[in-house]
Nucleic acid binder design. Structure first.
Ligand code: ATP
Length: 719
DNA sequence: AGCGCACATCAGCGT
DNA sequence: GATGTGCGCT
């Protein structure tokens, strides 16, 4: 054994070492939370490179999120400083996008295809609903979209769906599915599921392409394999078909994406798909204290559909898991803020990044946000609206899409009347009819604008619009991206529209950020034969907000789903109420086991201390008064009865607003009555009165008067 | 015909 | 908080 080998096996237990050094064949690592699965994977990849079993570029590691991919790359970079860059570490979707970008022409699609985000999908549905006279109240977009997604992932094509539909609702869904696929096919755009579906088809039908990637990937790894779906499995099965080195790791108790088609049977039955599968079990938890693990284990034992595991904590008992029930959600948030405040007072602001507040659903973050702002506690929120999903960004991106490809109808529809040019529903339907009749794009219709019977005003507006697009389309090859962008921002009138109202300040800032990122792109070399703009436009849908602002320190706010695979010293689970967590829908659908696994995931994110909170009061989703979650009983954290009045509802400490940590913060003398200020969330305002560091500030509509601690990071003096 | 406002309604997790 | 709908105004 060489020294290098020892180095990479160092800091691993015997089973982990075996998982790292068993590089050949089909290997399954199945283990509970915090047992070092991801650590095994990173060491294994580094080990393969260091032992010269393969070049970095011949190793594929699939993760569940972009964030997990970035983190794994960073960890491998620590182990192998020079080589991590060329390892293929990415999500299934990013892998598929990359494969398709090189090869999708084999399926009759252009390589610069656009990927729709869920907003775009809804736009498509909106058009289809109008055409098919379907009422959104009868079939909400999300219902139709999940039906479409499930159909695709089950490899049911629109024809089969139509043929097997019997109930009226099925018939309608089948017709929506058919129209949706027809539209996407005509536009030659792909949705997220298509990335998987098309890659599957490509590899299945094109032996040459398959052989190329099979040859390339000598070692394939998949993290969080319990959440792999059927098509994803087919893809890795095909890719590993030549070298037959596939290592998958996962924990069936952490399967939380069943609603998206993931099937934990794939990991459970893994040995039935391949010959000579080696299974390695890890049963030591290096993350959490025994108290945390005991509660989590106790909870998950209530699942009937489960293989028993025996997971022991490496660490000692530690602090007990705490539970707090407040009178309402605001007080619940105040309790969280107060407790964080105490932690910061005790350990210093250096631990901000080691604290997370997790919740079942995004809507729960709102009160937390305002409460944390009031309490001076900086935070980072994940899964919030993504940068590229903001209206102004999507609009400008649509302009770029149109410049790149004027026949992009979705982009056309989005911006032809943004800013307002007097093109309303009537003019749009004329265009739609003409395009349909002549089998051309909306933009191509404009060539025959005189034949469309528009009023002079509409005709002029459309001609000017078309002129800008055509001119910039022709300048594409010669001008830099940032220049094209600046010009279309100006000439489209979008800039004037935004800058006319000071309320739009944060939007203008977003536009500036977009321009900056385009400038950066201008300085980079383009590496394949598609244009830089094309590659940029294509990747946008795959980016998530989790990729930005990682610089600022702060408490992490995120859903339990996005916390998967992560760990924090101090974890709060906020909103542990019946019908919230478990969610109302899961109770209706009888899917409580997945919710219980989700709660297990949430609890096992904590290293040192776990705080669980709930509150009484009204919940607008269940339309009922809240009671504590059943999971609290199951985990042995609460002995009360939800349906009897035995609950001890607590109040957060009164000293909360003016505690020592906050009072020690010096208030700049710049803040005084009458001073104009700017706030990141509320825009411009003026200080009406000031009490210590607590300012009463008047903001423009719709925000109005707010009470804000003036030394907060979001608030700045306006010159 | 198109715009902008007031109002009602509804609310799941994410690549 | 986001989106749809109805109304009066231009
Ligand atoms: N042998 C070990 N000695 C010390 N610490 C370890 C060891 N193995 C793993 N750890 C630590 O335990 C923690 C959990 O590891 P890791 O994230 O790899 O677990 P996991 O099994 O992937 O967890 P999850 O299932 O929750 O995603 C990490 O902080 C890791 O550094």
């Amino acid at each position: 054994m060489s020294d290098a080998k020892h180095r990479l096996l160092d800091g691993l237990n015997a089973n982990q070492q075996q998982a790292v050094s068993t590089t050949e064949g089909y290997v399954r690592v199945i283990a509970g939370a915090g047992s070092g699965k991801t650590r095994v994977l990173t060491h294994r990849v580094a080990y393969i490179v260091e032992e010269h079993k393969a070049w970095p570029s011949e190793i594929l590691a699939i993760t569940f999120t972009n964030k997990a991919a970035a983190e794994m790359r960073e960890r491998i970079d620590h182990l192998l400083p020079d080589d991590s860059r060329s390892i293929w570490i990415m999500t299934y979707h990013a892998l598929c996008a990359r494969i398709l970008r090189m090869n999708i022409d084999a399926l009759g699609y252009p390589r610069d295809f656009i990927i729709l985000d869920s907003d775009d999908q809804k736009q498509v549905l909106k058009n289809i609903y109008a055409e098919l006279h379907i009422d959104i109240k009868e079939i909400p977009y999300n219902f139709a979209l999940s039906h479409i997604s499930n159909s695709k992932m089950d490899l049911i094509n629109p024809k089969d769906a139509e043929a097997s539909a019997t109930f009226p609702l099925e018939v309608k869904l089948a017709s929506i599915y058919k129209a949706y696929v027809k539209y996407l096919t005509a536009q030659k755009v792909l949705d997220f599921d298509d990335l998987l579906l098309f890659t599957y088809k490509l590899l299945k039908e094109n032996a040459e392409v398959l052989a190329q990637y099979q040859r390339k990937f000598k070692y394939i790894h998949v993290d969080e394999f319990q959440d792999t779906n059927g098509i994803q499995f087919e893809i890795v099965k095909m890719l590993s078909g030549m070298h037959e080195n596939l290592c998958i790791v996962g924990d069936p108790d952490q399967a939380i994406y069943g609603w998206r088609g993931a099937d934990p049977k794939i990991i459970l039955d893994f040995e039935q798909y391949f010959k000579g599968v080696q299974t390695i079990i890890l049963d030591r938890n290096y993350r959490s204290t025994q108290s945390i693990l005991n509660a989590a284990n106790k909870l998950i034992e209530h699942n009937r559909d489960r293989v028993k595991k025996d997971l022991q904590a490496h660490h000692g008992m530690g602090e007990a898991v705490s539970f707090f029930e407040a009178a309402d959600d605001t007080q619940e948030a105040q309790y969280v803020a107060h407790t964080i405040d105490q932690l910061l007072a005790e350990h210093g602001n250096g631990i901000l990044n080691d604290i997370a507040v997790l919740y079942r659903s995004n809507y729960l973050s709102r009160i937390l946000e305002t409460t944390l702002i009031d309490a001076h506690i900086p935070y980072r929120i994940y899964g919030d609206i993504r940068f590229y999903e903001r209206k102004e960004i999507k609009d400008m991106i649509s302009y770029l899409r149109l410049i790149h490809n004027p026949n992009d109808d979705l982009a056309f529809n989005r911006v032809v009347n943004e800013p307002k040019r007097g093109i309303g529903p009537k003019a749009m339907s004329v265009l739609a009819d003409y395009a349909e009749a002549n089998n051309c794009s909306r933009f191509e219709c404009l060539a025959n604008i005189d034949a469309l019977g528009f009023t002079p005003k509409v005709r002029k507006a459309l001609s000017e619009f078309a002129e800008v697009i055509i001119e910039l389309h022709e300048l594409q090859a010669t001008k830099s991206l940032a220049d094209i962008f600046a010009e279309v921002y100006q000439r489209s009138g979008y800039k004037d529209m935004l800058t006319a109202d000071p309320q739009n300040q944060s939007r203008v800032e977003n536009i500036n950020a977009l321009e900056t990122s385009l400038k950066e792109l201008d300085t980079q070399e383009s590496d394949d034969d598609t244009s830089k703009l094309a590659a940029y436009l294509q990747d946008i849908a795959l980016y998530t907000s989790q990729d930005d602002d990682q610089n600022d320190d702060g408490v992490t706010l995120m859903t339990v789903h996005s916390a998967k695979g992560l760990e924090f010293d101090y974890v709060f689970i906020y909103g542990m109420n019946d019908a919230v967590f478990p969610s109302k829908r899961s109770l209706e659908e009888g899917n409580i086991e997945e919710e219980r696994r989700l709660a297990y995931v949430a609890m096992t994110r904590a290293k040192k201390q776990l705080y669980i909170t709930a509150s009484a009061g009204y919940n607008f989703i269940s339309k009922m008064t809240k009671v504590p979650s059943l999971f609290l009983n199951e985990a042995g954290l609460w002995e009360g009865n939800q349906y009897k009045n035995e609950r001890i509802i607590q109040k957060p400490l009164e000293t909360f607003k003016k505690n020592d940590r906050i009072q020690n913060i010096e208030v700049s003398t710049d803040f005084k009555t009458g001073q104009k200020v700017t706030h990141n969330k509320y825009g411009d305002g003026i200080i009406v009165s000031l009490d210590g560091d607590l300012g009463t500030i008047a903001f423009a509509k719709p925000h109005g008067i707010k009470t804000i601690v003036v030394s907060h990071q979001f608030l700045k003096i306006k010159e």
